[in-house]
Design a protein around this nucleic acid. Structure first.
Lengths: 216, 216
DNA sequence: AAAAGATTGTGATTCTTTTCACAAACTCTG
DNA sequence: CAGAGTTTGTGAAAAGAATCACAATCTTTT
Protein backbone atom coordinates (compact mmCIF):
# COMPACT_ATOMS: atom_id res chain seq x y z
CA UNK A 1 0.00 0.00 0.00
CA UNK A 2 1.45 3.34 -0.99
CA UNK A 3 0.46 6.85 0.01
CA UNK A 4 2.25 10.08 -0.83
CA UNK A 5 5.17 8.00 -1.97
CA UNK A 6 5.55 6.39 1.47
CA UNK A 7 4.89 2.73 1.90
CA UNK A 8 2.29 1.98 4.52
CA UNK A 9 2.80 -1.16 6.58
CA UNK A 10 -0.01 -3.66 6.69
CA UNK A 11 0.27 -3.53 10.45
CA UNK A 12 -0.43 0.19 10.42
CA UNK A 13 -3.75 -0.44 8.70
CA UNK A 14 -4.60 -3.04 11.25
CA UNK A 15 -3.83 -0.66 14.09
CA UNK A 16 -5.94 2.10 12.58
CA UNK A 17 -8.97 -0.08 13.21
CA UNK A 18 -7.93 -0.33 16.83
CA UNK A 19 -7.59 3.43 17.14
CA UNK A 20 -10.94 3.88 15.48
CA UNK A 21 -12.63 1.53 17.89
CA UNK A 22 -11.13 3.35 20.86
CA UNK A 23 -12.06 6.75 19.44
CA UNK A 24 -15.63 5.60 18.99
CA UNK A 25 -15.72 4.65 22.66
CA UNK A 26 -14.18 7.95 23.71
CA UNK A 27 -16.69 9.82 21.61
CA UNK A 28 -19.55 8.00 23.32
CA UNK A 29 -18.39 9.14 26.74
CA UNK A 30 -17.99 12.68 25.47
CA UNK A 31 -14.23 12.94 25.51
CA UNK A 32 -13.34 15.63 23.02
CA UNK A 33 -9.60 15.49 22.85
CA UNK A 34 -6.87 12.89 23.29
CA UNK A 35 -3.09 12.81 23.07
CA UNK A 36 -1.10 10.17 21.26
CA UNK A 37 0.29 9.11 24.62
CA UNK A 38 -3.12 8.48 26.10
CA UNK A 39 -4.47 6.79 22.99
CA UNK A 40 -1.37 4.65 23.03
CA UNK A 41 -1.92 3.73 26.65
CA UNK A 42 -5.47 2.66 25.95
CA UNK A 43 -4.46 0.50 23.02
CA UNK A 44 -1.22 -0.87 24.47
CA UNK A 45 0.91 0.88 21.90
CA UNK A 46 3.58 3.53 22.11
CA UNK A 47 2.83 7.21 21.57
CA UNK A 48 5.35 7.32 18.75
CA UNK A 49 3.63 4.40 17.06
CA UNK A 50 0.30 6.17 17.19
CA UNK A 51 1.70 9.36 15.72
CA UNK A 52 3.65 7.61 13.00
CA UNK A 53 0.66 5.53 11.97
CA UNK A 54 -1.56 8.57 11.65
CA UNK A 55 1.24 10.46 9.99
CA UNK A 56 0.99 8.25 6.93
CA UNK A 57 -2.39 9.71 6.16
CA UNK A 58 -2.03 13.36 7.05
CA UNK A 59 -1.84 15.74 9.96
CA UNK A 60 -4.74 15.35 12.32
CA UNK A 61 -3.31 16.58 15.60
CA UNK A 62 -2.78 19.91 17.29
CA UNK A 63 0.51 20.53 19.02
CA UNK A 64 0.13 21.07 22.72
CA UNK A 65 -3.32 19.57 22.98
CA UNK A 66 -3.59 16.42 20.89
CA UNK A 67 -6.24 15.04 18.56
CA UNK A 68 -9.88 16.05 18.29
CA UNK A 69 -11.69 12.78 18.92
CA UNK A 70 -14.65 13.36 16.62
CA UNK A 71 -12.59 14.66 13.76
CA UNK A 72 -10.04 11.88 13.92
CA UNK A 73 -12.81 9.31 14.16
CA UNK A 74 -14.40 10.65 11.00
CA UNK A 75 -11.07 10.79 9.21
CA UNK A 76 -10.32 7.17 10.05
CA UNK A 77 -13.80 6.05 9.08
CA UNK A 78 -13.18 7.63 5.74
CA UNK A 79 -9.66 6.31 5.27
CA UNK A 80 -10.68 2.80 6.17
CA UNK A 81 -13.63 2.72 3.85
CA UNK A 82 -16.05 2.23 6.69
CA UNK A 83 -18.62 4.53 5.21
CA UNK A 84 -19.49 1.66 2.88
CA UNK A 85 -21.24 -1.57 3.84
CA UNK A 86 -19.55 -4.71 2.53
CA UNK A 87 -21.45 -7.79 1.49
CA UNK A 88 -20.09 -10.98 2.97
CA UNK A 89 -20.72 -14.64 2.19
CA UNK A 90 -19.93 -17.53 4.49
CA UNK A 91 -18.92 -20.77 2.84
CA UNK A 92 -19.09 -23.80 5.08
CA UNK A 93 -21.74 -23.74 7.78
CA UNK A 94 -20.20 -26.09 10.31
CA UNK A 95 -19.58 -25.19 13.94
CA UNK A 96 -17.45 -22.20 13.20
CA UNK A 97 -19.41 -21.05 10.19
CA UNK A 98 -22.69 -21.06 12.04
CA UNK A 99 -21.12 -19.27 14.99
CA UNK A 100 -20.04 -16.55 12.63
CA UNK A 101 -23.47 -16.50 11.00
CA UNK A 102 -25.03 -16.00 14.40
CA UNK A 103 -22.44 -13.47 15.50
CA UNK A 104 -24.15 -10.12 15.58
CA UNK A 105 -20.98 -8.09 15.80
CA UNK A 106 -20.38 -7.83 12.09
CA UNK A 107 -23.14 -5.32 11.34
CA UNK A 108 -21.60 -2.76 13.61
CA UNK A 109 -18.41 -3.08 11.60
CA UNK A 110 -19.92 -2.35 8.23
CA UNK A 111 -20.09 -6.00 7.25
CA UNK A 112 -23.31 -7.57 6.14
CA UNK A 113 -23.68 -11.29 5.71
CA UNK A 114 -25.81 -11.78 2.64
CA UNK A 115 -25.35 -15.45 1.82
CA UNK A 116 -24.23 -18.79 3.21
CA UNK A 117 -23.24 -21.97 1.42
CA UNK A 118 -22.69 -25.56 2.40
CA UNK A 119 -21.94 -28.80 0.57
CA UNK A 120 -24.13 -30.86 2.87
CA UNK A 121 -27.52 -31.33 1.19
CA UNK A 122 -29.16 -31.74 4.60
CA UNK A 123 -28.23 -28.21 5.53
CA UNK A 124 -29.21 -26.63 2.24
CA UNK A 125 -32.52 -24.80 2.57
CA UNK A 126 -32.27 -24.33 6.32
CA UNK A 127 -32.55 -20.81 7.62
CA UNK A 128 -30.25 -18.93 10.00
CA UNK A 129 -31.93 -15.69 10.96
CA UNK A 130 -32.73 -14.32 7.52
CA UNK A 131 -30.09 -16.23 5.59
CA UNK A 132 -31.04 -19.42 3.75
CA UNK A 133 -28.18 -21.85 3.29
CA UNK A 134 -27.54 -22.57 -0.36
CA UNK A 135 -25.72 -25.31 -2.19
CA UNK A 136 -22.10 -24.82 -3.20
CA UNK A 137 -23.14 -25.03 -6.83
CA UNK A 138 -25.03 -21.79 -6.48
CA UNK A 139 -21.99 -19.76 -5.47
CA UNK A 140 -21.28 -18.15 -8.81
CA UNK A 141 -24.81 -17.09 -9.49
CA UNK A 142 -25.49 -15.83 -5.95
CA UNK A 143 -22.21 -13.93 -5.66
CA UNK A 144 -23.18 -11.98 -8.76
CA UNK A 145 -26.78 -11.45 -7.70
CA UNK A 146 -26.08 -10.41 -4.12
CA UNK A 147 -22.90 -8.52 -4.96
CA UNK A 148 -20.73 -10.47 -2.54
CA UNK A 149 -17.39 -8.77 -2.05
CA UNK A 150 -15.87 -10.62 0.88
CA UNK A 151 -16.04 -14.27 1.71
CA UNK A 152 -15.37 -16.30 4.80
CA UNK A 153 -14.09 -19.77 4.16
CA UNK A 154 -14.94 -22.22 6.94
CA UNK A 155 -14.88 -25.52 5.08
CA UNK A 156 -12.78 -28.58 5.95
CA UNK A 157 -9.13 -28.55 4.90
CA UNK A 158 -9.69 -30.98 2.06
CA UNK A 159 -12.29 -28.81 0.37
CA UNK A 160 -10.65 -25.43 0.92
CA UNK A 161 -8.57 -25.10 -2.25
CA UNK A 162 -11.39 -26.30 -4.47
CA UNK A 163 -13.96 -23.95 -2.94
CA UNK A 164 -11.52 -21.05 -2.99
CA UNK A 165 -11.11 -21.51 -6.71
CA UNK A 166 -14.85 -21.48 -7.12
CA UNK A 167 -15.06 -18.23 -5.19
CA UNK A 168 -12.35 -16.62 -7.25
CA UNK A 169 -14.06 -17.84 -10.37
CA UNK A 170 -17.27 -16.24 -9.16
CA UNK A 171 -15.51 -12.91 -8.81
CA UNK A 172 -14.81 -12.68 -5.08
CA UNK A 173 -11.60 -10.77 -4.45
CA UNK A 174 -11.09 -11.19 -0.73
CA UNK A 175 -11.13 -14.38 1.30
CA UNK A 176 -10.86 -14.81 5.04
CA UNK A 177 -9.59 -18.35 5.25
CA UNK A 178 -10.09 -20.42 8.39
CA UNK A 179 -8.85 -23.66 6.86
CA UNK A 180 -5.31 -24.52 7.90
CA UNK A 181 -3.87 -24.69 4.40
CA UNK A 182 -2.10 -22.24 2.13
CA UNK A 183 -4.56 -21.41 -0.62
CA UNK A 184 -3.21 -21.07 -4.10
CA UNK A 185 -4.97 -18.18 -5.76
CA UNK A 186 -4.08 -15.52 -8.33
CA UNK A 187 -2.07 -12.73 -6.78
CA UNK A 188 -4.72 -10.10 -7.27
CA UNK A 189 -6.86 -12.00 -4.77
CA UNK A 190 -6.33 -10.99 -1.16
CA UNK A 191 -6.34 -13.90 1.25
CA UNK A 192 -6.09 -13.56 4.99
CA UNK A 193 -5.51 -16.68 7.02
CA UNK A 194 -6.93 -17.19 10.48
CA UNK A 195 -5.62 -20.38 11.92
CA UNK A 196 -7.10 -20.98 15.34
CA UNK A 197 -5.17 -24.12 16.18
CA UNK A 198 -1.96 -22.42 15.21
CA UNK A 199 -2.67 -19.47 17.45
CA UNK A 200 -3.20 -21.77 20.37
CA UNK A 201 -0.20 -23.85 19.48
CA UNK A 202 1.98 -20.77 19.35
CA UNK A 203 0.82 -19.97 22.85
CA UNK A 204 1.63 -23.47 24.00
CA UNK A 205 5.11 -23.07 22.58
CA UNK A 206 5.73 -20.14 24.88
CA UNK A 207 4.29 -22.06 27.75
CA UNK A 208 6.67 -24.90 26.94
CA UNK A 209 9.53 -22.40 27.12
CA UNK A 210 8.41 -21.09 30.50
CA UNK A 211 8.53 -24.49 32.05
CA UNK A 212 12.02 -24.96 30.77
CA UNK A 213 11.08 -27.86 28.50
CA UNK A 214 12.73 -26.50 25.41
CA UNK A 215 15.01 -23.81 26.71
CA UNK A 216 18.68 -24.49 26.32
CA UNK B 1 12.68 -15.97 22.25
CA UNK B 2 16.37 -16.65 22.15
CA UNK B 3 18.32 -19.68 20.96
CA UNK B 4 22.06 -20.05 20.66
CA UNK B 5 22.33 -16.31 21.08
CA UNK B 6 20.17 -15.68 18.03
CA UNK B 7 16.79 -14.07 18.43
CA UNK B 8 14.01 -16.12 16.93
CA UNK B 9 11.20 -14.18 15.28
CA UNK B 10 7.69 -14.93 16.47
CA UNK B 11 6.78 -15.44 12.83
CA UNK B 12 9.34 -18.22 12.55
CA UNK B 13 7.62 -20.10 15.36
CA UNK B 14 4.32 -19.66 13.63
CA UNK B 15 5.72 -21.02 10.39
CA UNK B 16 7.24 -24.04 12.10
CA UNK B 17 3.72 -25.20 12.83
CA UNK B 18 2.94 -24.90 9.15
CA UNK B 19 5.98 -26.95 8.22
CA UNK B 20 5.07 -29.54 10.80
CA UNK B 21 1.55 -29.86 9.45
CA UNK B 22 2.88 -30.34 5.93
CA UNK B 23 5.49 -32.84 7.06
CA UNK B 24 2.82 -34.84 8.82
CA UNK B 25 0.88 -35.02 5.57
CA UNK B 26 3.98 -36.00 3.62
CA UNK B 27 4.75 -38.69 6.14
CA UNK B 28 1.27 -40.13 5.74
CA UNK B 29 1.71 -40.55 2.00
CA UNK B 30 5.11 -42.13 2.54
CA UNK B 31 7.31 -39.39 1.22
CA UNK B 32 10.68 -39.86 2.85
CA UNK B 33 12.63 -36.83 1.81
CA UNK B 34 11.89 -33.23 0.86
CA UNK B 35 13.92 -30.22 -0.17
CA UNK B 36 13.47 -26.74 1.23
CA UNK B 37 12.36 -25.64 -2.22
CA UNK B 38 9.57 -28.17 -2.35
CA UNK B 39 8.49 -27.63 1.23
CA UNK B 40 8.43 -23.93 0.48
CA UNK B 41 6.31 -24.49 -2.57
CA UNK B 42 3.77 -26.47 -0.60
CA UNK B 43 3.51 -23.82 2.10
CA UNK B 44 3.73 -20.76 -0.14
CA UNK B 45 7.04 -19.70 1.29
CA UNK B 46 10.49 -19.26 -0.18
CA UNK B 47 13.13 -21.95 0.05
CA UNK B 48 15.44 -19.56 1.84
CA UNK B 49 12.75 -18.82 4.39
CA UNK B 50 12.34 -22.50 5.14
CA UNK B 51 16.05 -23.03 5.60
CA UNK B 52 16.54 -19.95 7.73
CA UNK B 53 13.64 -20.87 9.99
CA UNK B 54 14.96 -24.36 10.57
CA UNK B 55 18.46 -23.00 10.93
CA UNK B 56 17.52 -21.30 14.19
CA UNK B 57 17.11 -24.67 15.81
CA UNK B 58 19.87 -26.77 14.34
CA UNK B 59 20.96 -28.59 11.22
CA UNK B 60 18.37 -31.01 10.03
CA UNK B 61 19.10 -31.28 6.35
CA UNK B 62 21.47 -33.18 4.11
CA UNK B 63 23.19 -31.34 1.29
CA UNK B 64 22.26 -32.64 -2.10
CA UNK B 65 19.14 -34.45 -0.99
CA UNK B 66 17.19 -32.38 1.51
CA UNK B 67 15.40 -33.17 4.76
CA UNK B 68 14.33 -36.56 6.08
CA UNK B 69 10.59 -36.11 6.55
CA UNK B 70 10.17 -38.32 9.59
CA UNK B 71 13.19 -36.96 11.39
CA UNK B 72 12.32 -33.35 10.79
CA UNK B 73 8.77 -34.01 11.87
CA UNK B 74 9.94 -35.47 15.14
CA UNK B 75 12.38 -32.65 15.70
CA UNK B 76 9.66 -30.04 15.18
CA UNK B 77 7.23 -31.89 17.40
CA UNK B 78 9.83 -31.75 20.08
CA UNK B 79 10.82 -28.13 19.55
CA UNK B 80 7.23 -26.98 19.57
CA UNK B 81 6.32 -28.84 22.71
CA UNK B 82 3.79 -30.96 20.91
CA UNK B 83 4.75 -34.08 22.75
CA UNK B 84 2.81 -32.70 25.66
CA UNK B 85 -0.96 -32.30 25.89
CA UNK B 86 -2.09 -28.89 27.07
CA UNK B 87 -5.17 -28.33 29.17
CA UNK B 88 -7.42 -25.61 27.85
CA UNK B 89 -10.36 -23.76 29.37
CA UNK B 90 -12.95 -21.80 27.43
CA UNK B 91 -14.40 -18.79 29.16
CA UNK B 92 -17.59 -17.46 27.63
CA UNK B 93 -19.83 -20.03 25.97
CA UNK B 94 -21.65 -17.82 23.48
CA UNK B 95 -21.82 -18.51 19.77
CA UNK B 96 -18.09 -18.52 19.26
CA UNK B 97 -17.27 -20.23 22.54
CA UNK B 98 -19.63 -23.11 21.87
CA UNK B 99 -18.33 -23.45 18.32
CA UNK B 100 -14.86 -23.86 19.74
CA UNK B 101 -16.14 -26.30 22.36
CA UNK B 102 -17.69 -28.39 19.62
CA UNK B 103 -14.66 -28.06 17.35
CA UNK B 104 -13.00 -31.43 17.29
CA UNK B 105 -9.76 -30.22 15.75
CA UNK B 106 -8.06 -29.26 18.98
CA UNK B 107 -7.32 -32.80 20.16
CA UNK B 108 -5.26 -33.53 17.11
CA UNK B 109 -3.16 -30.52 18.00
CA UNK B 110 -2.31 -31.55 21.51
CA UNK B 111 -4.91 -29.32 23.06
CA UNK B 112 -7.51 -30.72 25.41
CA UNK B 113 -10.47 -28.70 26.54
CA UNK B 114 -10.99 -29.55 30.18
CA UNK B 115 -13.34 -26.82 31.38
CA UNK B 116 -15.81 -24.17 30.24
CA UNK B 117 -17.19 -21.18 32.11
CA UNK B 118 -20.04 -18.75 31.59
CA UNK B 119 -21.56 -15.92 33.57
CA UNK B 120 -25.10 -16.79 32.49
CA UNK B 121 -26.72 -18.86 35.22
CA UNK B 122 -29.01 -20.46 32.67
CA UNK B 123 -26.06 -22.01 30.91
CA UNK B 124 -24.29 -23.19 34.04
CA UNK B 125 -24.73 -26.92 34.53
CA UNK B 126 -25.43 -27.66 30.88
CA UNK B 127 -23.26 -30.20 29.17
CA UNK B 128 -21.35 -29.97 25.91
CA UNK B 129 -20.01 -33.37 25.06
CA UNK B 130 -18.24 -34.25 28.30
CA UNK B 131 -17.71 -30.70 29.53
CA UNK B 132 -20.11 -29.21 32.05
CA UNK B 133 -20.34 -25.43 31.96
CA UNK B 134 -19.37 -23.88 35.25
CA UNK B 135 -19.95 -20.51 36.81
CA UNK B 136 -17.31 -17.80 36.47
CA UNK B 137 -16.84 -17.84 40.22
CA UNK B 138 -15.44 -21.34 39.99
CA UNK B 139 -12.55 -20.37 37.74
CA UNK B 140 -9.85 -20.20 40.35
CA UNK B 141 -10.67 -23.47 41.98
CA UNK B 142 -11.20 -25.36 38.72
CA UNK B 143 -8.06 -24.01 37.06
CA UNK B 144 -6.04 -25.42 39.93
CA UNK B 145 -7.90 -28.70 40.06
CA UNK B 146 -7.88 -29.42 36.32
CA UNK B 147 -4.44 -27.94 35.75
CA UNK B 148 -5.58 -25.47 33.11
CA UNK B 149 -2.62 -23.99 31.28
CA UNK B 150 -4.21 -22.19 28.34
CA UNK B 151 -7.43 -20.27 28.23
CA UNK B 152 -9.65 -19.05 25.45
CA UNK B 153 -11.47 -15.85 26.20
CA UNK B 154 -14.74 -15.51 24.28
CA UNK B 155 -16.68 -13.16 26.51
CA UNK B 156 -18.24 -9.82 25.51
CA UNK B 157 -15.92 -6.81 25.29
CA UNK B 158 -17.20 -5.29 28.52
CA UNK B 159 -16.33 -8.34 30.58
CA UNK B 160 -13.00 -9.20 28.99
CA UNK B 161 -10.60 -7.25 31.19
CA UNK B 162 -12.32 -8.33 34.36
CA UNK B 163 -12.37 -12.01 33.43
CA UNK B 164 -8.78 -11.87 32.18
CA UNK B 165 -7.70 -10.63 35.59
CA UNK B 166 -9.55 -13.47 37.21
CA UNK B 167 -7.76 -15.94 34.95
CA UNK B 168 -4.37 -14.45 35.72
CA UNK B 169 -5.24 -14.50 39.37
CA UNK B 170 -6.09 -18.17 39.04
CA UNK B 171 -2.67 -18.87 37.61
CA UNK B 172 -3.32 -19.11 33.86
CA UNK B 173 -0.31 -17.88 31.92
CA UNK B 174 -1.57 -17.85 28.34
CA UNK B 175 -4.75 -16.32 27.00
CA UNK B 176 -6.16 -16.48 23.51
CA UNK B 177 -8.32 -13.39 23.46
CA UNK B 178 -11.23 -13.06 21.04
CA UNK B 179 -12.59 -9.87 22.59
CA UNK B 180 -11.70 -6.78 20.57
CA UNK B 181 -9.93 -4.96 23.39
CA UNK B 182 -6.34 -4.70 24.51
CA UNK B 183 -6.10 -6.63 27.74
CA UNK B 184 -3.99 -5.19 30.49
CA UNK B 185 -2.14 -8.02 32.16
CA UNK B 186 1.26 -8.50 33.82
CA UNK B 187 3.98 -8.89 31.24
CA UNK B 188 4.79 -12.45 32.15
CA UNK B 189 1.36 -13.39 30.86
CA UNK B 190 1.24 -14.20 27.16
CA UNK B 191 -1.82 -12.86 25.40
CA UNK B 192 -2.65 -13.51 21.79
CA UNK B 193 -5.40 -11.51 20.19
CA UNK B 194 -7.69 -12.88 17.52
CA UNK B 195 -9.91 -10.14 16.27
CA UNK B 196 -12.25 -11.47 13.63
CA UNK B 197 -13.94 -8.21 12.76
CA UNK B 198 -10.60 -6.55 12.37
CA UNK B 199 -9.38 -9.25 10.01
CA UNK B 200 -12.40 -8.76 7.83
CA UNK B 201 -12.16 -5.02 8.04
CA UNK B 202 -8.55 -5.14 6.97
CA UNK B 203 -9.64 -7.12 3.96
CA UNK B 204 -12.33 -4.59 3.16
CA UNK B 205 -9.74 -1.83 3.32
CA UNK B 206 -7.83 -3.47 0.51
CA UNK B 207 -11.01 -3.95 -1.41
CA UNK B 208 -11.74 -0.25 -1.00
CA UNK B 209 -8.33 0.44 -2.48
CA UNK B 210 -9.02 -1.81 -5.47
CA UNK B 211 -12.14 0.07 -6.38
CA UNK B 212 -10.25 3.32 -6.25
CA UNK B 213 -12.34 4.64 -3.37
CA UNK B 214 -9.47 5.66 -1.21
CA UNK B 215 -6.55 5.73 -3.57
CA UNK B 216 -5.04 9.09 -4.24
C1' DA C 1 36.49 -42.15 -9.14
C1' DA C 2 35.91 -37.91 -11.22
C1' DA C 3 32.65 -34.71 -12.92
C1' DA C 4 28.10 -32.88 -12.91
C1' DG C 5 24.15 -31.85 -10.28
C1' DA C 6 21.43 -30.83 -6.16
C1' DT C 7 20.75 -28.80 -1.90
C1' DT C 8 21.98 -27.14 2.55
C1' DG C 9 23.52 -23.59 6.02
C1' DT C 10 24.63 -19.05 6.78
C1' DG C 11 27.01 -14.49 6.49
C1' DA C 12 26.00 -10.33 4.04
C1' DT C 13 22.60 -7.48 2.06
C1' DT C 14 18.34 -5.44 1.50
C1' DC C 15 13.99 -4.29 2.94
C1' DT C 16 10.59 -3.19 6.52
C1' DT C 17 8.99 -1.55 10.82
C1' DT C 18 9.63 0.47 15.18
C1' DT C 19 11.71 3.56 18.28
C1' DC C 20 14.19 7.75 19.29
C1' DA C 21 14.68 12.45 19.72
C1' DC C 22 13.88 17.07 19.01
C1' DA C 23 12.45 21.41 16.56
C1' DA C 24 8.17 23.53 15.75
C1' DA C 25 3.66 24.60 17.10
C1' DC C 26 0.29 25.11 20.16
C1' DT C 27 -1.85 25.85 25.06
C1' DC C 28 -2.03 27.43 29.63
C1' DT C 29 -0.85 30.37 33.58
C1' DG C 30 0.08 34.25 36.25
C1' DC D 1 1.86 38.50 26.72
C1' DA D 2 6.00 36.16 28.09
C1' DG D 3 7.59 32.12 29.81
C1' DA D 4 6.67 27.36 31.16
C1' DG D 5 4.57 23.27 29.82
C1' DT D 6 2.48 19.99 26.24
C1' DT D 7 2.23 17.53 22.32
C1' DT D 8 2.69 16.93 17.45
C1' DG D 9 5.13 15.52 13.14
C1' DT D 10 8.96 13.62 11.24
C1' DG D 11 13.75 12.86 9.87
C1' DA D 12 17.41 9.80 11.69
C1' DA D 13 18.85 5.70 14.09
C1' DA D 14 17.99 1.16 15.59
C1' DA D 15 15.93 -3.16 15.47
C1' DG D 16 13.82 -6.86 13.15
C1' DA D 17 12.87 -9.93 9.32
C1' DA D 18 13.23 -11.62 4.64
C1' DT D 19 16.03 -12.37 0.70
C1' DC D 20 20.27 -13.14 -1.69
C1' DA D 21 24.10 -15.59 -2.97
C1' DC D 22 27.54 -18.81 -2.64
C1' DA D 23 31.01 -22.01 -0.47
C1' DA D 24 30.61 -26.43 1.41
C1' DT D 25 28.72 -30.87 1.26
C1' DC D 26 26.36 -34.64 -0.29
C1' DT D 27 24.23 -37.51 -4.34
C1' DT D 28 24.03 -39.27 -8.88
C1' DT D 29 25.89 -40.36 -13.22
C1' DT D 30 29.08 -42.04 -16.39
Amino acid sequence: MVMNGKKIPQSTISRLFVYLRELTELDKINIRTISSAELGERTNLSDAQVRKDLGYFGQFGVSGSGYAVGELKNALNNILGKDKIWNVAIVGVGHLGSALLAYSGFDTHGLKIVAAFDADEKKVGKKFLDITIQSIEEIKQTVKKKKVELSILTVPVGKAQEVAEELVNAGVECILNFAPVSLNVPENIKVKDVDLSRELETLSYFLAGKNGNNKK
